[in-house]
Design a protein around this nucleic acid. Sequence first.
DNA 1: ATTTTGTATTTTGTATGCAAAATGCACTAA
DNA 2: TTAGTGCATTTTGCATACAAAATACAAAAT
Lengths: 245, 245
Amino acid sequence: MINLGAKHENLDQKAYSIIKKMIIDRKLLPGEKIPQEKLAQDLGISRTPLVSALKYLENEKLVEAKPRRGYFVRLFTMQEMVSIFELREVLEGLAARRAAANITDAQIDELDRFFDPFKTIKNITDLRTYAREDRRFHSFVTEVGAKEFLKSILQTYNIISFSYQVVSSEGLIRSPNETISEHLAIVEALSRRDAVKSEDLMRYHFKQSIARLKEEIAAEATGTSVRVKPLPSMDSGQPSMENSL
Amino acid sequence: MINLGAKHENLDQKAYSIIKKMIIDRKLLPGEKIPQEKLAQDLGISRTPLVSALKYLENEKLVEAKPRRGYFVRLFTMQEMVSIFELREVLEGLAARRAAANITDAQIDELDRFFDPFKTIKNITDLRTYAREDRRFHSFVTEVGAKEFLKSILQTYNIISFSYQVVSSEGLIRSPNETISEHLAIVEALSRRDAVKSEDLMRYHFKQSIARLKEEIAAEATGTSVRVKPLPSMDSGQPSMENSL
DNA sequence: ATTTTGTATTTTGTATGCAAAATGCACTAA
DNA sequence: TTAGTGCATTTTGCATACAAAATACAAAAT
């Protein structure tokens, strides 16, 4: 007896996807209140499945419930963003380790072409394109190495990173000239299916960015820099899930 | 202006806590269907807040929703249990790292008394007491080192580990004689506030248990052993959240 | 002009009702 | 005996209704 997926996708699931996308695409901004009645009408559903969807988003931390006051798009402090990156460090490290163990020959071919346009350039200036490739790369590793639990957690925190857009310059914490070699080193370790090295390099990559992030925060505190801010608005052309490093 | 907590705790939160406890205490067993109408009546509430609570438990993975069929206490395969332990490896590793950085002098004193009754014994036979101490130890590290995000994730997976009771002999994967030295080494590193060492040792501790777990699974597959099974029933006297290693 | 108070309006939390789907069960056919 | 088949019963998903709480806002008091 086959159990055909068992997923009809109810209204709350659809609402969930739509609202999630609205947050990612910054149609709903951090801190903003979510108008239940209005949103329900816009989606053509009642409040019941809408609130269900909000519950999901609540433990995904994308949304915050204040009892008797409603739901708000969640806002993160800089300290919390650092915590999230520390989480991503160990989780993507694990994903890389598993990816090295699972990767197929075809996937290795695909992997080898990552960052191709940048391999020969000495000074990378096209931040937008590099940032996109960066996100695509992290997505790829997650896709190959993470399933079920790890995948769902990682997706959540990647979305937070991205939707909050901690950093300016296309979301890059460090310049491409600094990170390209790290990226290529990870690619190389994965190609060799070296699990330990892949994990180590991925964690090193994150550690470096976290250190920089902390510097930025310290600098901002002393008034030296003001690059760290949520964007005022933006339509992510490609709704990639990853934040760039 | 003070924002007094902002938590009145609605019915769904209460239901959530109660159901969670029922799963931990094995009043509801893995695979079992959750009878909405009946449970709602037992709790003296309507289905609306009950279903809300189930949504929470759903993305905590303690419960599984099959559309149009209802909610079921989630059941995990052995492979999934290994994945969960791999997750705990990196997450508790991170928790240990942070704990080493945050721990107070008072907490170090407390920590030093962990495993006291076992320090002088050459062959530990009281598995039950050791297992409890083990869980208490892991809880302590989580409490000191993990907050917000990390904490909530860890709690979830610790509960799964415990509620599913992967392993026999009080939930211990390896014998106390094997793990006591690892535990004491972690205690020592934390006391010295050595973040790197604390993380490394915690991960080593998990890696060892994971390796053993995989052996168990392989052995079970070839019919050598049958120790790995969900318990038929049991009232956890102390509802500790941690699974023992 | 600002703060406070009181009242009208909106929004939340929860129960309830109902159609559609799933389940259980008696009956029939092999 | 086992395997269908059709019908009655239960359960789910969702909309709706409504009391209690929160909010907005106007009038009064400082």
